[in-house]
Computed example of a mutant assay.
Amino acid sequence: MVQLLFALLSIELTVILILSFANPIRKLMVKVLDLLKRGRGPLIIKTIATTVFIVFGSTIYTILKIHKRSMDAGMVNPTEEVLMAHHLLEASLMGKLLLNISLFFFQYLHL
């Protein structure tokens, strides 16, 4: 899951860099975004964003459960500490992905 989130963020970074500088690839990217505005693009993006949001909520819930369990026990279990770090990484990547999706599509697609 983490590798997928890193791949999506690197693709978003590439699109942002392409749109930032005037070059021939930018014109192609604008045409692709224009085609995405029509058709099923917005519906697909909304579906993906909803799915990521639900998984994000589940990850936050798991983080809170692990934190509460460690606070009740009074000591930190090393296994739970590793799981907590993994879930925090996933949650931060999903949060960044959701932020980028919302900013990008509210700006370019006017959803």
Results as ranks from 00 to 15, higher is better:
K96Y: 12
M84A: 06
R69Q: 10
N77H: 08
L103F: 04
S58I: 12
L93F: 14
K65Q: 07
M94A: 04
N100R: 13
I101W: 11
G95I: 04
T50L: 06
G95Y: 00
V55A: 09
L98D: 06
E90S: 07
H67P: 01
I66R: 04
L83Y: 05
H87D: 12
M71Q: 10
L83G: 00
A91E: 11
M71K: 08
H86I: 05
L64S: 12
T50E: 07
Y61P: 03
F53D: 14
H67Q: 12
G57I: 05
N100F: 14
M84C: 03
N100K: 05
H86P: 01
V76S: 01
F104L: 11
A85G: 01
V52L: 14
I60G: 00
T50G: 13
N77I: 03
S102M: 09
V82D: 12
F53A: 15
L89P: 02
T62L: 12
K68Q: 15
I66S: 02
T59K: 02
F53H: 11
V55L: 14
H87Q: 11
F53R: 14
L99Y: 15
F105V: 08
S92P: 00
N100S: 13
Y61A: 15
L93C: 06
T62C: 06
F53C: 06
A73D: 00
G74W: 04
A49I: 03
G95K: 01
P78E: 00
L99T: 11
I66V: 14
I66E: 06
T51M: 11
A91N: 04
H67M: 13
I66G: 09
L103E: 15
L98W: 09
L98C: 05
T62K: 15
M71P: 00
